[in-house]
């Protein structure tokens, strides 16, 4: 399934872009620490199935371990290694307002009341809104370095590619549709639409990322 593969690769690319940005500029300016914390929570709650050793494939397992490891490493870079470049005063989104509703939603909508399915469902809902602190920060500063926008664009591309992936799977497989993932995935992709528009019309034309006043 080419869409899913490209989606995963674009997700990988986003992480490498972020690491590259932090390492080369030796700064995490413009990156929301809260969004990065949420991604660690998302990966750790989603990939609990690693502990059961009922693994899907080598690819699947390696990617899961990579996503958990790289997201924790990014927190280390932001909080310890390049701490002085991280400005919490503009990263003011209240993540309690995301965590609470996602916890409630995961208790209502899930595929089974157990320690794998509820955290899995929680992680799906949380991922769909995890980018909000980052977008909120962008909104507050009104502009961003090109590399930061490439990072967000790669994340957006990853989400967008999962939609044709689901259509493809719906047409070719008989397992039915993972409704929770699809609905949350569409919401998540929707959050990138505004950003994507400015990215395509400005950054890719060589202009600076600036929000209209």
């Amino acid at each position: 399934n080419i869409f899913r593969l490209l989606g995963d690769l674009s997700h990988l690319a986003s992480i490498f872009i972020l690491l590259h940005k932090i390492q080369t500029s030796r700064s995490c300016r413009g990156i929301s620490f809260k969004t990065q914390v949420l991604y660690v929570v998302v990966f750790c709650t989603r990939y609990l199935d690693l502990l059961t050793f009922q693994l899907h494939s080598f690819y699947n397992t390696i990617m899961k371990i990579f996503f958990i490891g790289s997201s924790v490493y990014i927190l280390y870079l932001m909080r310890i290694r390049f701490r002085p470049t991280n400005d919490p005063s503009i990263d003011t989104f209240r993540i309690e307002y995301l965590l609470g509703p996602c916890a409630v939603l995961s208790l209502i909508f899930n595929y089974g009341y157990n320690w794998i399915e509820i955290p899995w469902s929680f992680s799906i809902f949380l991922e769909s809104v995890a980018i909000l602190p980052q977008l909120f920060m962008l909104q507050r500063t009104g502009e961003a370095e090109a590399i930061t926008t490439h990072y967000i664009a790669a994340l957006g591309a990853y989400r967008a590619l999962y939609i044709p992936n689901w259509i493809y799977r719906y047409l070719t497989e008989t397992n039915g549709v993972d409704a929770i993932a699809v609905v949350a995935g569409i919401v998540q992709t929707g959050l990138y639409v505004d950003f994507g528009y400015i990215y395509f019309t400005k950054v890719l034309q060589g202009q600076k990322f600036e929000l209209p006043a």
Binding site: R4, R46, Q54, M63, F67, G112, G176, V177, D178
Partner: peptide
């Protein structure tokens, strides 16, 4: 959605 398939997406 067939739960027996598990969550094979990342």
């Amino acid at each position: 959605f067939d739960e027996a398939q598990g969550h094979d997406e990342l």
